[in-house]
Design a binder for these strands. Sequence first.
DNA 1: AATCGGTCTGACCGATCGGTCAGGTGCTGA
DNA 2: TCAGCACCTGACCGATCGGTCAGACCGATT
Lengths: 192, 192
Amino acid sequence: MLTDRSGILEDMARPVPETHQEILAAAARRFAVTGYKGTSLQDIAREVGCSKATVLYHFANKEALLGELMAPAIAVLEALDARIAAHRGGAAQRVAAEGFVDLAVRFRREIALLRGEFPDLLQQPAFAHVQQISERLIDAFAGQSDRPSARIAALVVLAGIAETCAEFIAIPDEELRPALLAVVQRALEPAT
Amino acid sequence: MLTDRSGILEDMARPVPETHQEILAAAARRFAVTGYKGTSLQDIAREVGCSKATVLYHFANKEALLGELMAPAIAVLEALDARIAAHRGGAAQRVAAEGFVDLAVRFRREIALLRGEFPDLLQQPAFAHVQQISERLIDAFAGQSDRPSARIAALVVLAGIAETCAEFIAIPDEELRPALLAVVQRALEPAT
DNA sequence: AATCGGTCTGACCGATCGGTCAGGTGCTGA
DNA sequence: TCAGCACCTGACCGATCGGTCAGACCGATT
């Protein structure tokens, strides 16, 4: 039933009107500055230059907006989770460290907009398994050890990386990533 | 400050009515769970068992409540800042590391209720110099180095400690503190 | 010319926010 | 007995929140 209403876009690259993307970009910008709860739909609409009703025409609700914004990062996080599981018992710690640093550097903006609202937002169904994944990440960082000191070190590193990436939004990737990898290798006990 | 409303309280055991303290305790409990912005004066009043107007009778406004709640932690933080400045050039890094771990462990609850709202709350006049202090803390952790890798490592450790303390609210101090000190010593490069 | 669907909007909704205010209550000192 | 004060409250305020809805606009199809 779909009439591709301009024969020119055979390349199927435009299933979504540009306003949709503009709203997404504006929301990312605002969320990164004032947080999810701290940003109103009005704020986003003002930044786009449209009405609040338009925002809610393109997205079912505020939560759906956040979900679409976080989807790529979550997909990569899930892929990392699978890769860690595949190395269980072997080089899981190294895979987790390198993979998470990569992810954190790449999705700095997404991490920044979750800052501090992580606990609240994890309750939402869209992020249901993210919590489990982060627990498995801590396991991997701790070298699958149950020793409290290992788990504490793992959480320090994990949370520290996330916060640091959110803070250094301007620094180039090539500078941030090796510095993070270095501190991670130093901080994590060799799995005992 | 409260008006000492009669010269008779020589015994200085009751300078503040008990409701005041109950509100303070209830606010600390709620803030730690749902955050500052996420907790309404209604929530606090409900937990105390009084009306919202009573909360605002004892505290000028919500910000004043938070200020009184954070005052002890901030006082200790300022003392640490002074101690670090005194060791400038010498053992500043060690003083900063041990002092901050102590502080973070001791004021876990206070740190937890700032979770993620740190950037917003630092704007408020009550926390004006806290921002400068935390920058000096990073300086000390980085061994006064300007190298980006040193500053990144410092921020990872600082933020990681804070987040970890906020997360492990149940674990006993004797277990948390040495584990944190160990990971800090490992993670921080010897000042080069 | 008529219609139709995608896009967009102003007006509006109920809920909740932090905060104000006039007044009630009960103890205390004169 | 009575004035004064600390304490507490319900009612109320303006602002803002996320979200709904009826309808305006407009290019494409018939």
